[in-house]
Nucleic acid binder design. Structure first.
Lengths: 205, 205
DNA sequence: TAGATTGTTAATCGATTAACAATC
DNA sequence: TAGATTGTTAATCGATTAACAATC
C-alpha cells in the first residue's frame, strides 16, 4: 500500500473500472486482465495496471485479476464499501428523476432527505421522503451528519444553497445547476450540466 | 488562428468559460480579465490566456477581454453559434426531465425527436413531441440529419441503441446509461452517471 | 515447462506555470 | 505617461506509454 498522494486523475478513473468490473461480475465472469478491462473502458492496459498498483498488488502474474477481489479493494479505496446518505436540494424535474433513480443501489448511496423552497412542493411526498423547506437544510443535515448533497436548484439559487450546505458540514456536492460554485478547498464539487457536456462534443462535428 | 490540433482537454474547458462569460454578460458586465474569469471558474489566469490564445488574439493588453466579443468567438469555435437538433432516446424519468429542461435554450441545442421502446409510452406527448418507437430511430434520425443524441435507456439496452445511433449517422452521444459504450473513433461520447460522479468524491471524505 | 500477465522502471510525451516583453 | 494585462516563451511539473524482469 502506497500512502503518497494519489493524483485526482487516477481517482477519477477508479469508478469507471468499478462499474465495468461490477458489470462483468453480474455476467458471471470471475477473472479479467488489464488488457480486457482496458478494452471495455477504452483505457490502455499499461495505464490500468499503473493506476491499480498505486494501491497495492491486487493481481497475479499469468492470470490477471480476480474480479470479486478487485471489486472489494476498489470499493474500499473509494469508500463505497458502505452506504452514504445523500441530501437532495431541489424537487423539480431533475430532483424527481434522481429521487426515483434506481441507479444508486449497490453503488454506495441512498437519498436521505429532500429540500425545496417552493411552498407548493414543501410537504409533497417523493418516494419515501417528504419535501422539507430549504430553511431546514443546515439544521437537518447537521443532525443527520450528512456529508454529500446533490444540487438541482436554478442557477440563481445555487451559490446561496451551496453556502448553506458547506455550513451544514457537507463535503461533497454534485452540482446540476449550470454555474461554477465557490466553496472551500476541503469541499469537493462535481458538475453535471448537459449543455456543457454537449458543447464539449460539437467542436468535433 | 492556429490550425494545429487542439488538445481535447482545452476544448473541454471552453464550455466552462463560455458559461461563466454568459453569466457575466447577463449581469451587464462588459469586460473581464483572465485573472477575474479564472477566479470565477477556478482555473489559473495563465491557463485561461493560453487556452484562448490557441484560437487567436481576442484580448487587449491593459484592458482584458470584451465579453461580448469573446462569447462570439467561443460560440464560433465550439460551433454553438447555431442551434443543433438533438434526439432523445428513453422517455423515463430522466428523459422527461431533459425534455422539459429549459437549460438548453441559448446554449445551442433543442430536442427534435423522442424515442422509447415501451408500447405504453409510444404515442405519449412530451412537450411538443410525440414519443416514437425505437424501431424508427435510424430512419427518422437519418431523414432529419440529426448528429447529436442523448441516451437515457437502461444499461442493458444502451449498447444496442448506440449501435443504431451510429448507423443513423449520429456523431455525438451524451450517455446517461451507467455503462461504457463501444463506438467508432469518429463518434464522441460524454458520460453522465451520478453514481460515478459521487464515487469520485467519496475517496476524499 | 511454456505461456501469460503483472508490477515497475525509464523514456516519452503533454500540460501547466512562471515570467516578461509588448502594448493598449 | 504609468498601470494593467495580454500573448508567448521557456522551465517545470505531471501523466502516459513502452518495455521487461519477475512470477504465477
Amino acid at each position: 500500500m502506497n500512502a503518497e498522494k494519489i493524483p485526482d486523475i487516477i481517482i477519477g478513473r477508479l469508478p469507471v473500472y468499478l462499474r465495468a468490473l461490477q458489470r462483468m461480475a453480474d455476467n458471471g465472469i470471475k477473472t479479467t486482465s488489464s488488457q480486457e478491462l482496458g478494452e471495455h473502458v477504452g483505457i490502455s492496459a499499461a495505464q490500468i495496471r499503473k493506476d491499480i498498483s498505486q494501491f497495492g498488488e491486487f493481481g497475479k502474474q499469468g492470470t490477471g485479476y480476480s474480479i470479486a477481489y478487485l471489486l472489494d479493494k476498489l470499493r474500499e479505496i473509494l469508500k463505497v464499501d458502505r452506504i452514504w446518505d445523500v441530501a437532495l436540494i431541489g424537487a423539480g424535474d431533475i430532483g424527481h428523476a434522481l429521487a426515483n433513480y434506481q441507479g444508486f443501489q449497490n453503488r454506495g448511496f441512498r437519498i436521505a432527505a429532500i429540500f425545496d423552497n417552493n411552498k407548493e412542493k414543501i410537504g409533497e411526498k417523493i418516494g419515501d421522503f417528504v419535501v422539507q423547506d430549504t430553511d431546514k437544510i443546515v439544521e437537518t443535515i447537521k443532525a443527520a451528519n450528512i456529508k454529500i448533497a446533490m444540487l438541482t436548484v436554478p442557477a440563481a439559487a445555487a451559490q446561496s444553497v451551496a453556502d448553506k450546505l458547506v455550513q451544514a458540514g457537507v463535503k461533497a456536492i454534485l452540482n446540476y445547476a449550470p454555474i461554477s460554485l465557490n466553496v472551500p478547498n476541503n469541499v469537493k464539487v462535481q458538475y453535471i450540466d448537459p449543455s456543457t457536456h454537449l458543447q464539449r462534443m460539437t467542436y468535433y462535428l
